[in-house]
Structures are given as structure tokens and as C-alpha cells.
Computed example of a mutant assay.
Amino acid sequence: MKKIALIVVVILIIAATGLYFYMYQDHRDIANEDASFSLTVKSLETEFSQNDSLANKKYLDKTIEVYGKISSLDLPINAIVLDEKMFGTFQQSVPEGLTAGKQVKMKGRFIGYDDLLGEFKMDQVTVSE
């Protein structure tokens, strides 16, 4: 009886340890990941207008690079908007030197399309010119 109890305790400890490491994995470092896709805001918009469910399967939660012109910057919330359609948020502050009208390449995690605002959303954004 003691052997069975010992085996059950060992199995529970192993299962709890495995569950802990599964639940608390390291977070993704989007800035150091290679982009799965590289495209313009217009081409992303075209793909979503043709078949949004297929486009969601293709891009959702993937690291993508998007090219476009800066429409606006929102410094208080560390956000950028490209071509009036792609909204991205930085983890830290907005990098200096960015101005409206400038062409940039933005890399981040694609988190979806907001039907209400008509915008694509990205987070953990980094920008290069």
C-alpha cells in the first residue's frame, strides 16, 4: 500500500511540474523573431476583403512586417497608425524621429481586424525606416 501511495505522489509531482512549465512558458520576443509575412497595408486589406476567415487563419498571432506611410502617432498610448488602417502599439515609448507622412516598415504581432473601427491591429511593434 505504501508503494502505491508513493507512486501516486511521484506521478502527481511530475504532472504538476509539467503543468507549471507548460503554463508559464517564456514570452515571445517579437522584436527578435523573423517575420512570417512581409506586405503592404493595402495588400493586407485586399486579402481580408476577399476572404476574411482565410486571411485570419493566415496572419493571426503571426509576426508580420507591414510597409506604409505614417498617418498618425499617439504618444500618450505609444501607438502608431499606418495608411489610416493599421494600428500598432509599442511596448515602450514611440521611437524618436517618426513623423506623420514618413514611409516606414513596421514589424509586430498581428492580433486581428477591428470591424467597428475598420482597422487592423498589431502589438509589440518595432519600426524601421
Rank of each mutant, 00 (worst) to 15 (best):
I14N: 04
L117W: 03
I14V: 15
F21H: 07
V104F: 12
Q103M: 15
A100Y: 00
L82P: 11
E96K: 11
A55Q: 11
L73D: 04
K42S: 11
L75H: 08
K121Y: 13
Y113Q: 05
Y59Q: 14
A55T: 12
G18S: 07
S36R: 08
M122I: 10
L117H: 02
S53E: 15
L117Q: 08
L6W: 01
A5S: 13
M106R: 00
Q103S: 14
E45V: 06
N51H: 12
S43N: 11
S128G: 04
I70F: 04
A100N: 13
N51K: 11
R109I: 08
K105E: 09
P95D: 05
E96W: 00
Q91Y: 10
F21S: 05
S43P: 00
V8G: 07
D74M: 04
K102W: 02
S43A: 09
K121P: 00
I4F: 10
P95I: 07
Q124F: 08
L54Q: 15
S38Q: 14
A31R: 05
R109Q: 14
S49G: 04
L39G: 01
V9T: 15
L39T: 13
T89F: 06
K85F: 06
V9D: 06
I77P: 02
A35T: 00
E45S: 15
Q25M: 10
L39D: 03
S93D: 15
D29P: 00
F48L: 07
K3M: 07
V41M: 04
N56V: 04
D123G: 04
Q25Y: 10
L19P: 01
K2V: 10
E45G: 11
G118V: 07
E33L: 07
G112W: 12
L39N: 04
N51F: 05
D123K: 15
I7N: 14
I64F: 09
F90P: 04
D115F: 14
L60Y: 13
I13R: 01
S53G: 00
F87V: 01
S38I: 05
K58L: 13
G108I: 01
P76R: 09
F37W: 12
V94R: 09
N51I: 06
D74T: 09
T17W: 12
A100T: 14
D83M: 00
G18Q: 08
T63A: 12
K62M: 14
K85G: 05
T63D: 03
I14T: 03
K62T: 05
K58N: 12
L98Q: 06
G88Q: 10
V10S: 13
E84S: 15
L12F: 14
V10T: 09
E45W: 13
A15P: 03
M106E: 03
I30D: 04
S72V: 05
S53K: 13
Y22V: 02
K121C: 01
E119D: 07
D123R: 12
